[in-house]
Design a protein around this nucleic acid. Structure first.
Lengths: 221, 221
DNA sequence: ATCCCATGTCGGGAATTACCTGGCAGGAAA
DNA sequence: TTTCCTGCCAGGTAATTCCCGACATGGGAT
């Protein structure tokens, strides 16, 4: 801790990517990879043991979402810097990630020297966001309440509503949904009605569109 | 060409992954990376100039599908080996890729020494498939006609049927679809009925499921 | 040449589903 | 405490989908 070597830890479920990052970092004189992990479980253990200065984190981990991980890490050791490195260009992710306390958000399509620059910037206390994402960020924040509210609507939907939104988008009828969640068809209908009101939508296809845009579908039960 | 160094080219749109691969390969004594590209256009040019022995190819490229690329390369220089390295675990991909003449299919979650082993195996003339995919392959080929036909059904669906399948999955009503493609509601209905028969499905949700499994949705018009 | 069959195009009428209006209870927020 | 939001539910009506058909066309097999 006394020397100024930056202790870095890599969490990514693709060994090849880990290796690449490892080698890129090792090529720098003042950085050192002190741990690698392919899952959240491993990750947390190693973080506690090795106490890295900075964690390079891929969001799509097998056991749980990277966002949960950020939350946990920031609880355990708030001083550790987190650089998210991902393929996701969706706006939702970056907002959540930054709100959870990540210090940087870089896309995997970034060049490797961008990564090094980002690490140094973060260690100086700056926040780094991939340039191709900043445009989207600006759009989001410069937009007046109107659309912004809709964008935030996912968070405004209750758990139940989000649940039903997804089931509708997956093509289930109200009846099927009612059976799935053990309520009457009428209840499902009124939930749907309120979702429609909130999101200002009319057609079923807009449920799908919304779910698609917010990555609520993606192959699973 | 006279010495036995394996000349490798990397095509992947993530520079960090490229770097990683590059460094992993360079660490071997008998391999050399003679070119990198982040897109198909670049890729083809470099292949023609540098004449690599083996191409490591990511399927998700910005300008066009990796499958098209394989086709082109195999036309231009049939002797070049192609190792597909991807995150896609879907069965569809691997089948197409191998049919197009790829010599290997590895997932990015593979370890880096697996990659090296794969390269050597391919250069010996073997075919390499990621172990986590082989199970799926077996399932596919061991299954009697019944389900296999369903798997192949996507190709068996007519253009019109596929078009309608997607629209249904996107949540449009028959009426809306009819307007979109300028036919009567009744026509849409009979198309749907025939799709259902072919795919042996009953509910709308199965349209969505099918479309999701076959990557027919993914954010676009 | 002829038959077969998948495809693309339609209807009528029945069955199912979704929508609108309205109500009620409980909890959180103001 | 009052208001707002949520989750729950019904009746009646409108819309959608399903199940029976139909017919013309064009490619493949016999």
């Amino acid at each position: 801790m006394s020397d100024d070597t930056i202790k870095i830890m890599i969490i990514d479920d693709h060994p090849i990517v880990r290796k690449g990052l490892h080698l890129v970092i090792k090529a720098q004189g003042d950085m050192e990879v002190i741990g690698e992990a392919g899952s959240v479980r491993e990750g947390i253990t190693i973080v506690q043991e090795k106490k890295p200065d900075l964690i390079i984190l891929d969001l799509t981990l097998p056991d749980c979402s990277g966002i949960e991980f950020i939350k946990k890490i920031k609880q355990l050791s708030p001083q550790v810097k987190i650089l998210v490195l991902t393929i996701h260009e969706e706006e939702d992710y970056i907002q959540k990630v930054l709100l959870e306390g990540a210090n940087g958000y870089l896309l995997k399509k970034a060049a490797d020297d961008e990564l090094i620059l980002a690490i140094r910037a973060i260690m100086r206390g700056e926040m780094v966001v991939d340039s191709s994402m900043t445009k989207k960020l600006w759009q989001r924040y410069l937009q007046p309440a109107e659309k912004t509210q809709k964008s935030k609507a996912k968070d405004m939907l209750s758990k139940r509503q989000k649940e039903i939104l997804i089931l509708v988008a997956r093509g289930f009828t109200d009846k099927q949904i009612a059976e799935k969640i053990h309520v009457s068809v009428k209840t499902v209908e009124s939930h749907k009605a309120r979702i429609k009101e909130k999101l200002d939508i009319v057609h079923r296809s807009e449920f799908v569109e919304y779910a698609l845009e917010h990555n609520l579908l993606d192959l699973h039960g």
